[in-house]
Simulated assay, not measured.
Amino acid sequence: MMDNRGHVACAVVGITANRHLHDGVHRDWLRRRYIEALTKYASVECVILPTLDGDLPCDSTARTFREVMRRLDGLVLTGDESDLDPDILRKNERVWARAEDDIVPCKTDRPRDRLSWVALTVAGELQMPVLGICRGLQEMNVHRNGTLHEDLSLSHKGITHRENTNLPRDEQYLPVHSVKVAPGGLLSSVIESEELRVNSLHKQGVAEVGAGIRVEAVADDGVVEALSYRNSPTFQLALQWHPEWHASSDKTSQRIFRAFGSACDAYRTQRSAR
């Protein structure tokens, strides 16, 4: 069967950037692996969404982003080395204004936290397809008022969820533990498997699941490894692992990206018809 999507305008997705501060210079950055996997296997075009400093009130920023995201067909929340600050994403008593410690390398990235709150808020309003990866899963949970373990090594001793930094980068992203996939869920319908082997490169993890969230997969030590938003009219799925890194050789990762791409195509068709 020929894929004719190359002959028509394809879906466009927004991908969250991260903030990098080096030598006093602020940079928004994103690993190419996300774009490569999305372009090849989801068959979408990608635009990078910039991080936010918090100079404007969150509601004003959301209004601006709403106009941008009306032109998009999907949202991807990427991973990052920094820890999530739940106070940015909580719906109640949100802390938004810029602070001196907003960016601490490998620890804090509040400009990214602000971006993710706005992007998830608008994506929810627009009922847009969403794919969260690693940090993105944690953001999707906290955005629904879920909570996080700040350091899984202190609360879960069964599995080491952090990468082995002594290994070459490609090897850090190889599968290291199993996850059990919940039957009857979104992830199960996509991958058609009850168990997966996944990579694991995260310090934080889900503690309490947020409102309206379905757990899609768990590790043997109970850590939530995948979740979705219940009652969503479209594909809104998050994975604690990184499907993008070895997507070229992993059929399961390819299936996930294709399912997301198909949802973005369907959303684009509906959006064009409005």
Rank of each mutant, 00 (worst) to 15 (best):
A37T: 07
A263R: 02
V25F: 12
S262A: 13
N166M: 13
R98C: 13
K107L: 14
L174T: 02
Y229A: 01
E244Y: 10
A37E: 04
S43L: 10
V122D: 02
I88N: 05
G146N: 07
P105C: 13
Y229Q: 02
A217G: 01
W29D: 02
H202P: 00
T16M: 06
G210W: 06
S200H: 04
L89K: 00
A219M: 08
N4Y: 09
T39G: 15
R230S: 14
F257Q: 03
A238S: 13
N199H: 00
I213C: 01
L152Y: 07
A207M: 12
D80E: 12
T51I: 10
W245V: 14
T61N: 08
T269N: 10
V104R: 02
L186D: 07
R5V: 12
T51L: 10
A259M: 08
S189E: 08
R214C: 15
E194K: 10
H143W: 01
R63L: 15
E225M: 10
H202W: 03
N141E: 04
R258F: 03
E225W: 06
E208S: 15
R63E: 15
D73M: 01
R63Q: 15
G184D: 10
S189P: 04
G124F: 03
I48M: 13
A182L: 03
E139D: 03
G74Q: 06
E139C: 00
L89W: 00
I35D: 00
P57G: 13
Y229N: 04
R32I: 04
R66F: 13
D83F: 07
V181S: 05
D151Q: 00
R169D: 01
L227M: 12
L186Q: 08
R71T: 15
D73C: 05
L186N: 07
E192M: 15
A42E: 03
L89V: 08
L77E: 05
P86S: 10
S262W: 01
D3Y: 13
P57S: 15
D59C: 09
A17N: 06
T160V: 06
